[in-house]
Design a binder for these strands. Structure first.
Length: 110
DNA sequence: TACTTGACAAAAG
DNA sequence: CCTTTTGCCAAGT
């Protein structure tokens, strides 16, 4: 198994997310093999500012495309970042979530 | 070693 | 559509 910690694996996946795209915590956990640990993905995000290089955690949303962690970014910062990348956000959730959804499992060749 | 805590997810009411 | 409940797993104390 990998030498990296669970957090680092999550960070690597998140860093792979291209601009204008988003993914869900569950999808990341699933691609890591620990699909039951979707909560751990969010938990890792909590420490994301401690990661180096920083991870675009604003591209990670919950299964509904809802910006659950917007408050951790501070107000509307998360929305602004997504909008800047071309992701429409309305009522704290991603518009056309399924269209902008980026599946790590596919990009990883799985 | 055991208990508590979560930026979740899916199901049920 | 919204709220509540259950399961899940790793990290910190």
């Amino acid at each position: 198994m990998p030498d990296l910690n669970f957090y680092d694996q999550v960070y690597q996946i998140v860093r792979m997310i291209p601009p204008g795209r988003v993914t869900s915590y569950g999808a990341i956990a699933n691609s890591l093999g620990t699909k039951g640990s979707s909560r751990m993905v969010g938990y890792a995000m909590q420490a994301c500012p401690a990661a180096n290089p920083p991870v675009p955690a604003h591209r990670v949303v919950n299964s509904q495309g809802l910006l659950t962690g917007k408050f951790h970014f501070g107000g509307d910062l998360m929305e602004q970042l997504l909008e800047s990348e071309g992701v429409k956000v309305e009522n704290d959730k991603v518009v056309d979530f399924k269209k902008v959804f980026w599946d790590p499992a596919i990009e990883l060749g799985m």
